[in-house]
């Protein structure tokens, strides 16, 4: 564990909690892309199946359980409890254009042609594009609640910090994973436009044109 990965994980956890609390407290999921949340639930499910097969550490296990639990709770709130506030018209990104190519790529480019490894690779590729429906929805509505932008900032920051974690681990531990790094770079680049808007327009509401 290094400082970049620790802060990255805490930033990721903060994003997940911010979103869950925002929906729960405001009893509304307006402006939130349910499709992105479904993709994140799939990302965690396919990546954390090793919860059943191997124990790494208490921290690792707890965080995985929290991530999966919050992801499904968020999907439940959006599509069941507060479905009346779900803005389906603006959440119109065709996720099949993400899942199918990512699935194909995971089968073609992976480290090991085994079930768990392909699922892990699929989850890494899918995570890099899972935020697209959300960014697309914001660009369609042209605005985002302040709390939503904080959610996106923490979410984008987490993988950016992971890039530094991978540099750290390459330098000090002498190994790296090209699949995770390339996907992590793509994921972080997708947030760049948002990061710029977030930093330059902080404070009084947002008019986005991502």
């Amino acid at each position: 564990m290094n400082i970049f990965r620790l802060i990255g994980d805490l930033s990721h956890l903060a994003a997940i909690i911010i979103l869950l609390l925002k929906i729960w407290k405001s009893r509304s999921c307006a402006g939130i892309s349910g499709k992105s949340q479904i993709l994140f639930a799939i990302v965690f499910t396919t990546r954390y199946l090793d919860l059943l097969t191997s124990f790494i550490s208490l921290y690792n296990t707890c965080m995985k359980v929290i991530y999966i639990g919050c992801a499904y709770a968020t999907v439940y709130l959006i599509y069941m409890k507060f479905r009346a506030t779900y803005d389906g018209n603006h959440d119109s990104f065709r996720v099949e254009f993400l899942v199918v190519p990512v699935g194909g790529l995971a089968v073609l480019i992976n480290h090991d042609f085994s079930f768990l490894e392909i699922l892990w690779t699929f989850s890494i590729y899918l995570e890099s594009v899972a935020i697209l429906p959300q960014l697309f929805m914001i660009s369609k509505t042209g605005e985002a609640e302040t709390i939503t932008t904080h959610y996106l900032f923490c979410l984008g920051l987490y993988r950016a910090l992971y890039l530094f974690n991978w540099i750290w681990r390459f330098y000090f531990e002498g190994f790296f994973d090209m699949i995770a790094i390339v996907a992590g770079v793509v994921q972080t680049v997708l947030y760049c436009d948002f990061f710029y808007l977030y930093v330059t327009k902080d404070g009084k509401g947002y008019r986005f044109s991502i």
Binding site: R5, D9, H12, D50, S54, I56, S57, N60, M63, K64, Y67, H111, D112, W120, Y162, N165, R169, E173, F175, F176, D177, M178, I179, A180
Partner: peptide, 10 residues
């Protein structure tokens, strides 16, 4: 392999 070490990450 080398990359399996990455499996301790979230």
């Amino acid at each position: 392999q080398l990359h399996n070490k990455l499996k301790d990450e979230l």
